[in-house]
Design a protein around this nucleic acid. Sequence first.
DNA 1: ATGAATATACGAATATCTTCGTAAACAAAT
DNA 2: ATTTGTTTACGAAGATATTCGTATATTCAT
Lengths: 131, 131
Amino acid sequence: MGISGKHIKPTESELEILRVLWEKGPSTVREVHEVLGQSKDAGYTTTLKLMQIMHEKGLLDRDTSSKTHIYSSAVSQENTQRQLLDKMIDTVFNGSASQLVLQALGNHTSSKEELEKIKQYLNDMEKKINN
Amino acid sequence: MGISGKHIKPTESELEILRVLWEKGPSTVREVHEVLGQSKDAGYTTTLKLMQIMHEKGLLDRDTSSKTHIYSSAVSQENTQRQLLDKMIDTVFNGSASQLVLQALGNHTSSKEELEKIKQYLNDMEKKINN
DNA sequence: ATGAATATACGAATATCTTCGTAAACAAAT
DNA sequence: ATTTGTTTACGAAGATATTCGTATATTCAT
């Protein structure tokens, strides 16, 4: 199992923090906390504690060279997405990715461009299967 | 909010039980427990307790007319899948269903038939958009 | 009827996640 | 130097999820 294959399992709250860090890049607890504050209200030390735990778990890296620590995500967004998605396919959609795809498309209007992109992708895939 | 719009949020273990009931239909605790036993090992009373709690929460219906109670899912597989999926799109894929779709297709080889089905679906959708 | 097997009900222990209060360290301003 | 504000560290409370031991009820075979 490679570096990207580590079994990550962020909790709800942890995922919120990861999203902020993926978006903003390396940040202080204060910065993360302020972004979160827009959607949720928890105390500052709550955010701090969560990020400390995430660091212990290996979800976050941190730079402690200055007094105010700088945290950054130690897991890539793509790997995390893939792992959570794979798990959902397994446990919710009985292993059928296409069942999930149909469900996803059915309930979310996608733009014409997005649909094109997906169709293009499917065409390429069919070619591969046929060869 | 309709009957199908209730905000369901089964836990990991609860989902395992729901899957058995969706598959097998109405079942006793014993029957569910035996299916679960193949992949996990917990005591019988653990399964019982979980199913009792699920009944309290409204996730399961039960028929107590005979001594051995018969449980069945009170939530449809499709609605549950949709809710969990919507949530994942929101919290993991920043609201982009198509991003999720591409990720899902990329990592799971689907059969030619499945791809056809999806393409057909996409074609229909494009027509709708164009009209 | 008695005993063995099986079922439910209940309470509680354990684990994990989330939250926050408080203390100690540090920096900047007065 | 003292105060004020900001930060980290620590511990613990609260909430939820998971697990199981034990008691009680019921069925069935003897």
